[in-house]
Design a protein around this nucleic acid. Structure first.
Length: 154
DNA sequence: GCCAACGTTGGC
DNA sequence: GCCAACGTTGGC
C-alpha cells in the first residue's frame, strides 16, 4: 500500500466539499507525471489532502483511493475547461481516480511546519519548484505528517 | 529532435 | 500581484 498527496485549490475543490460528498472523481489533472502517479494507485492507497494557493497552505486531512485509474470524463466535454480534442473515448489521454473522505486532521499541518521539520527534507512537496498536483509520499514522511497533525511530535 | 517562446502553478 | 520554476508547444 502506498501513500500520495492530492493538491487542490480550495476555491476549486475543497476538503469540506469532499467531506460532504464522501467521494469524488479526481478530475482535471492535465500533467503527465501527475497522471502517471494516479495510474500507479491501488485501491486502498491513502492520500494527504493538501490545500494550495491560500494564505496558509496545509495538509488538512486524509483521503483514500476507492477506484483505480480510468478515463477522465472532462477531456471529452467539448467547450469545457478540460476538453482535449486529441483524446478519443477509445483512446483517452487523461486519467483519474476516485477518492473518498477518511478523516480531517485535528490540526492542519502547514507548509511552513513541514518545511521546518528536518525529517521531511526531501519530501516532494518541499522540493524547489515542485508543482505536481498529485505526488507520492514516502511511508516515513506519511508517519511524520500524521504525528504533526496529532500534535504529538516533538 | 532541438530549443525558444509561452502558459501555468503556487508560494510569497 | 509578482515572479521563479518548469511543462508544453511549435517552428525549424
Amino acid at each position: 500500500m502506498r501513500y500520495w498527496l492530492f493538491k487542490t485549490e480550495p476555491s476549486a475543490f475543497s476538503f469540506e466539499q469532499l467531506e460532504k460528498d464522501r467521494t469524488t472523481p479526481w478530475t482535471g489533472v492535465r500533467n503527465f507525471q501527475a497522471r502517471n502517479n494516479m495510474m500507479e494507485m491501488k485501491l486502498g492507497d491513502l492520500g494527504l489532502f493538501y490545500h494550495s494557493s491560500i494564505a496558509e497552505p496545509a495538509a488538512i486531512g486524509i483521503c483514500r483511493v476507492v477506484r483505480e485509474a480510468y478515463a477522465d470524463f472532462s477531456q471529452f466535454e467539448r467547450g469545457g475547461d478540460y476538453f482535449d480534442g486529441r483524446a478519443k473515448p477509445d483512446k483517452p489521454i487523461w486519467m483519474m481516480v476516485d477518492v473518498e473522505f477518511v478523516e480531517r486532521f485535528a490540526r492542519p499541518v502547514t507548509l511552513s511546519q513541514m518545511r521546518g521539520d528536518p525529517r521531511l527534507v526531501g519530501m516532494a512537496l518541499l522540493k524547489r519548484g515542485q508543482r505536481l498536483s498529485v505526488q507520492p509520499v514516502m511511508p516515513h514522511e506519511w508517519k511524520i505528517v500524521l504525528q504533526l497533525a496529532e500534535g504529538t511530535a516533538s
